[in-house]
Amino acid sequence: MISLVLGIFAGIGATILGLARFTGHAFVFAGSAVSHIFRPPFFPGEVLRQFMKIGYYSLPVVGMTALFTGAVLALQIYIGGSRFNAESAVASIVAIGITRELGPVLAGLMVAGRVSSAIAAEIATMRVTEQIDALVTLSTNPIKYLVTPRVVAATLALPLLVAVADSIGILGGFLIGVERLDFNAATYIRNTTEFLQLADITSGLWKAAVFGFIIALMGCYHGYYSGRGAQGVGRATTNAVVSASILILASNYVLTELFFSA
């Protein structure tokens, strides 16, 4: 009985220690990646290539997610709002909900699934096949060449993706509002813009930048320190997506608190 209790505590302790170690490592790794932004040589071509891979090619996924989310949001708010005669709030709440919260978070999570895993798999494969060692022998710092461009590209790409997601999400709400819920199109548009503030949009875009940073960082981190062999690559991929998703949700709460008090 005592040994069981001890075992549980040992397990909890080990988990906490592991988490602390991960946090420490990840911070050092992030610091190193960021410091290389300002030190030459620079790899603008790599940044551009990663920007296309992370940003441009995520557009379909993010667009579909936003479209259906805006649509379902309009339906749900209509159902809820009609209970206290607040149907007319649908347009405003869809706009605020999408720009402040659902646009950045859902786009972040979708891109985490798509991009963190791809980055982790690519870099882990480079580790396993000694391409990272080869970079070192060719006088190229692998953090600078591999990690920094991805982190920069993702941090810049996510706000743009989220801006697109916001627009499409609001459009999804509009389509349902007008086609299904019989709102007048002009009224719906007026309600959308009337209560929407610039801060709703910008706070969402700041969140997006942080999520982009997290997505690329977790992909790179788990790939860079991947174990040997195909198993190592697989584990790196899973860990990247899981940790990126959790960090997105946690940092989303922290950021929302910050914007809320501001």
Binding site: E130, D133, A134, L135, T137, L138
Partner: peptide, 15 residues
């Protein structure tokens, strides 16, 4: 490092 050249056993080409 600039004075070194290295062929890795598995090639280690950047794919």
């Amino acid at each position: 490092l600039a004075r070194f050249g290295m062929l890795f056993q598995g090639g280690a080409l950047f794919d």
